[in-house]
């Protein structure tokens, strides 16, 4: 049964402390759990998600876009697409919400020590990979080369522009950006390619030896990027995909996120490509 601080059983109240508009339809929510003990105890693995709820709206599964900050704040990147996220976008700092989780396996970062990591993000897929990147940079000496490739629809849809600008100046990682089409200059002086993510992948140099790839993006992205990675010689057990499904319960019961006999919420959302190859309907 639920204990007072077991967030996977019942949601805990939280308060919106800051909103940061990232694009026309996407906002970064910074939240703090009202229960300071629970906030302190919260352990997050990059790639995990939470169920965020708003009174009168209901719940929505959202990836944690960062590891909990020193102030205990949680960061969730929310795009306005459905009725719950639309309601979330009407909130102001101080608004009360609730969170349960974190759920899912997250990226197996401890297995990746000593390896190069290639992060491939398409659109909103940058959110879980941002928490992964934060983890890798926080433990920088544990990993080899770190490369982030991020594709967005157009320059205005690039999320976290200021952070990307900072990252582009770092010498301990590589950053490549691409947009599907250009109708304006990329902001903040960001260097940006034009074209789709698989094109970017074949157009720039990166290390494939002893490298794991972490991929998150819109559903259409997976097959073509995986194909491209395999062309570069990535073995299927070095490609990690964070999948999107309609998680409801988060604990492997309700069947909404079932992928064959796997549950995206408990077996995933991060899967090795090697484990998905035999699971039809997964990609």
């Amino acid at each position: 049964m639920s204990t007072n601080h077991d967030m996977t059983a019942i949601p805990l109240p939280a308060t919106v402390i800051e909103l940061r508009k990232l694009s026309d339809d996407t906002t970064l929510f910074r939240l703090r759990l009202d229960d300071a003990i629970a906030a302190r105890r919260l352990k997050v693995i990059p790639g995990q998600f939470v169920q965020l709820s708003v009174p009168a709206g209901g719940e929505v599964p959202i990836s944690l876009a960062a590891l909990p900050g020193e102030d205990g704040a949680l960061e969730l990147c929310v795009r306005r697409v459905g009725h719950v996220t639309a309601l979330l976008h009407t909130l102001a700092p101080g608004a009360g919400v609730a969170i349960r989780g974190p759920y899912g396996n997250g990226f197996p970062v401890t297995d990746w020590r000593g390896k190069n990591v290639l992060l491939l993000a398409g659109g909103l897929g940058i959110a879980p990979l941002r928490s992964l990147l934060h983890f890798l940079l926080r433990h920088r000496s544990d990993f080899g080369e770190i490369t982030l490739m991020y594709g967005a629809r157009e320059p205005a849809a690039i999320l976290f522009k200021e952070e990307l600008s900072e990252l582009s100046g770092r010498r301990d990682m590589h950053l490549f950006l691409t947009v599907d089409f250009v109708s304006e200059e990329p902001p903040g002086g960001l260097v940006c390619h034009t074209g789709l993510l698989p094109g970017l992948l074949s157009g720039v140099n990166f290390t494939t030896e002893n490298t794991v790839a972490a991929l998150c993006g819109p559903p259409a992205l997976y097959r073509c990027v995986v194909e491209e990675l395999q062309g570069f010689g990535f073995p299927a057990d070095s490609i990690f995909l964070s999948l999107e499904r309609r998680m409801k319960c988060g604990v492997g019961l309700c069947c909404h996120c079932a992928i064959g006999e796997l549950f995206c919420c408990t077996d995933g959302p991060v899967f090795r490509y090697a484990d998905l190859r035999g699971v039809e309907g997964a990609l």
């Binding site: 709820s53 009174p55 009168a56 709206g57 209901g58 719940e59 409801k248 319960c249 019961l253 309700c254 069947c255 909404h256």
Partner: peptide
């Protein structure tokens, strides 16, 4: 045995329900 989780209520108060799906 699949089910849905929905909130029914207003901003001020409400319930979370587990409904067959």
């Amino acid at each position: 045995h699949c089910f849905d989780i929905v909130d029914e209520g207003t901003e001020g108060k409400g319930v979370r329900r587990k409904n067959w799906d």
